[in-house]
Design a protein around this nucleic acid. Sequence first.
DNA 1: CATGACCGTGATACTAATACCGGTATAGTA
DNA 2: TACTATACCGGTATTAGTATCACGGTCATG
Lengths: 89, 89
Amino acid sequence: MVRAPLTRLDWQRGERLGALLRQARGDRSMPEVAAAAGLSAETLRKIETGRVPTPAFFTVAALATALDIPLDTLAEHCAEPAPVRQVPA
Amino acid sequence: MVRAPLTRLDWQRGERLGALLRQARGDRSMPEVAAAAGLSAETLRKIETGRVPTPAFFTVAALATALDIPLDTLAEHCAEPAPVRQVPA
DNA sequence: CATGACCGTGATACTAATACCGGTATAGTA
DNA sequence: TACTATACCGGTATTAGTATCACGGTCATG
C-alpha cells in the first residue's frame, strides 16, 4: 500500500470543515472570498461542499485569514463534530 | 495551464514551516512525533526539511497538536519570514 | 425574453502529498 | 572494526488537490 485512500472519517471531517467555512463566509460571495484567499471559486466551492476533504494547509490558512477566523478554532471544530448531546451532565 | 507549479516563495514558506516544526520537536525522535501525529516518519522528515512545502491542513494540524503548538502561531511565522531589520522605527 | 451574476455538478489535465523501499552518512557504544 | 540507532536522500507507486472548461439552474435586472 503506497497511499491509503481517504477514510469515511476523513470525508466527514472535510464536510465539517467545509460547513464551518461556508458559515464563516456569511453573505460574502464565493468569488469574492476566493479571490481574497488567492484561489479559484471552483476550488472554494469544492472545499465548502466537502468534495475536497483535505485541502493544503496554506489554502485553509489563507481562507481563515480572508474570513477572519482563527485556525485553531477551525481545527477544533473539525476534530469535534458534535460530541454534544451525549455528555449532558 | 491546469495547475501552476509551486513558486519559489512557496518553497521558502515550506522551509520556514519545516524549520518551525523541527524546532518544536526538540529532543523527541522523528518516528515518535510522526506516530503521535498519525503519519510516517518519512513524510515528517520531508515536511521538516521543506521538501513538501504545502502539506495537507489536517497533517499540519495533527503535528501542531502532537507538538503542542497553536496553528495560528505556525501560520503567522510562516507568512512572516524575517520582516524585521527593515522597519527599525 | 434576454442578460448577467452567483451557485452547483461533472469532466479533464497536471502537479503535489503520502507511503514504502533501498542506500548512505554520522554518531554512540562495545 | 562492528553494531545500532537516527537522520538524510533518491526513486517508485498511488491517491489527492487545484485549475480550467463546459453545462445547467436560480434569481435579479434590463
